[in-house]
Amino acid sequence: MQNFLKAERVRFSYVNNMENPPVVNEVLKGIDIEIKKGEFVAVLGHNGSGKSTLAKCFNAINLPDEGDVYAVGFNTKDEDKILDIRQNVGMVFQNPDNQLVATIVEEDVAFALENMGVEPKEIRRRVDEALKTVGMYEYREHAPHKLSGGQKQRVAIAGIIAMEPECILLDEPTAMLDPKGRREVLKTIRKLNRENGVTIVLITHYMEEAALADRVVVVDKGQVIIDDVPEKVFSQVEKMKSVGLDVPQVTELCWELKKAGFDVSTEIISEDECVEALYKLFDKG
């Protein structure tokens, strides 16, 4: 698809009218980025770098001050297409508590479909399917506030995939979860990408999560500063640290060894690769 997700020289500012004169805070400074259908892209950047603002441009919550944003083929400025865009570009937020609307899990998953005016029978089918995809079908009649953080977040994801979107934007979906919840959510996200072919844009502060993506985009001061496969991104250890980010521990270890003059690749991002490389190193010596 042409213009699946695309930002062209986008500028966006938040204006605080409470002050006199109004305070203008430019968050996106002419950002360019294109995401293709089926990709799994991780977006990194410290707090205030503009990554969440960018994500909200893709589903027409934020409209650019300058430049154009295209989502699933439509320009987000086209008001008639807003519901089409929102339906096809789903969004999951950080706090699972603040995005569940209904008092029963299945009612919540049905919420978007009800808004879209889908036939009741079709809603039922899609709700059941979505709940099965995220592994929460047995909990369909539970109250959301009795679930764990990871379970709530999976319900929120089910509420989005029930719309059958082409793409899902996730804004730090694991930030408030414990390690178990994080694993559950990540597993769900990867499954959606691999098995259902949903395009994933994952905003995160966890480098290990970003290492799972096909592509990592680093945003700093409203600009894209690195855009590459995770191996190439994380091998730039110094640059990553200079913008307030981190790299996976294994990458840092290999980078330190390389710096000390040993023959190790700095493009190692997974535990398996690291163990293998270190083992070789010992063997050789």
């Binding site: 978007a112 005016g117 036939e119």
Partner: peptide, 27 residues
């Protein structure tokens, strides 16, 4: 207030636009 703001945003992202044209899963 923070929760309300976030919830409103999440609802908007899920195509909420008032009661017009809404259907219900459970009839």
């Amino acid at each position: 207030f923070r929760r309300a703001e976030e919830l409103a945003l999440a609802m908007e992202c899920r195509c909420y636009h008032g009661g017009d044209g809404r259907t219900r899963m459970k009839q």
